[in-house]
């Protein structure tokens, strides 16, 4: 069963990722990105990271891609990019070789390092139907709000800074200076 889920989600992820690269239209690329993000969410569920799967769908597919689409439509850049023109000659070939080499190197590293994956921690709670369905959320909350509570607070500062900075950046300049 997990094999079936893995194969289906992998196909979703790879088709979406290739779509992001090869689609000429930025809107189509954004929609392919949604496919990839949903595939990743499925893989999260199958690895018993249910909370992260929900966050993935809400934050990435719900917020970030919508933000992309807003910017595409706001700027009016939704005309197709001509992929035939190669700005730097030979760049595509070199990029392809680099990509294939990167896949090879990373795969070799993963395969040779797979012995290092040993049981280390206290175990990941996986939800049992009817008994404790939100075990994953509870365990993750215990980790975030105890071990990483300082990083969590810093994260809130980061988000406020990002929002304020973006508002300042994207605001239209008025004649009266900073109003």
């Amino acid at each position: 069963m997990e094999l079936f889920v893995f194969v289906c989600a992998s196909v979703m992820v790879l088709v979406g990722a290739l779509g992001v690269i090869f689609r000429k239209h930025p809107v189509h690329a954004a929609l392919s990105l949604v496919l990839t993000l949903f595939g990743i969410a499925v893989l999260f569920v199958s690895q018993s990271a249910e909370f992260l799967a929900a966050v993935q769908v809400i934050v990435y597919a719900g917020a970030i891609v919508i933000l992309f689409l807003f910017v595409i439509m706001l700027l009016g850049v939704d005309r197709a990019e001509d992929l035939k023109i190669e700005p730097l000659t030979g760049q595509r070939w070199i990029a392809g070789v680099v990509g294939i080499g990167m896949v090879g190197l990373l795969t070799a590293a993963v395969v040779s390092g797979s012995d290092a994956l040993r049981l280390r921690g206290a175990g990941i709670a996986s939800p049992v139907a009817g008994e404790n369905a939100d075990a994953n959320i509870q365990q993750l909350a215990n980790s975030i709000f105890s071990d990483y509570v300082f990083a969590f607070e810093i994260t809130s500062v980061l988000l406020v800074v990002a929002v304020v900075g973006t508002v300042l950046l994207a605001r239209r300049r008025t004649g009266k200076g900073i109003a």
Partner: peptide, 22 residues
């Protein structure tokens, strides 16, 4: 590795990615 810290770090990566996109 049967460790919840991986998921906790993914949570922070998502937050930072959202800020970065914005």
């Amino acid at each position: 590795m049967s460790d919840i810290d991986g998921q906790a770090i993914v949570f922070f990566v998502m937050v930072v990615a959202a800020a970065e996109v914005v």
